[in-house]
């Protein structure tokens, strides 16, 4: 389980998020559309997970890990249109 939902409306992505996490993230974001997503400890995320972020465009918090994935994904999520 790498998608954690904290009590204060923050969803934390932890470690390497496999494609299965997309469904869990989707559920969290559908039930709490205003939730923020902390990505500071997420080393990598499957395209399916990123797709959920792109579609729902939650507010990302935390400094993204300085790897090549987040370098391109972070601006894309922030610029994408939401559902």
């Amino acid at each position: 389980m790498t998608v954690l939902s904290a009590v204060n409306g923050v969803i934390v992505l932890e470690g390497a998020c496999p494609s299965e996490d997309a469904e869990i993230l989707l559920q969290h974001l559908t039930s709490t559309p205003s939730a923020r997503v902390d990505i500071s400890i997420c080393e990598s995320a499957h395209t399916a997970v990123i797709q959920v972020l792109l579609a729902f465009k939650p507010r990302l918090i935390g400094t993204p890990p300085g790897n090549s994935l987040w370098r391109w994904v972070h601006p894309a999520v922030q610029a994408s249109g939401s559902i």
């Binding site: 997309a22 559908t30 399916a48 797709q51 391109w72 249109g81």
Partner: peptide
């Protein structure tokens, strides 16, 4: 650049396992 291929469907029809980028 990562963009949706088609506009994102409504939240209740969204299937995260259909790649749309």
């Amino acid at each position: 650049e990562i963009r949706p291929e088609r506009p994102w469907p409504a939240a209740d029809k969204f299937n995260p396992y259909v790649c749309n980028i």
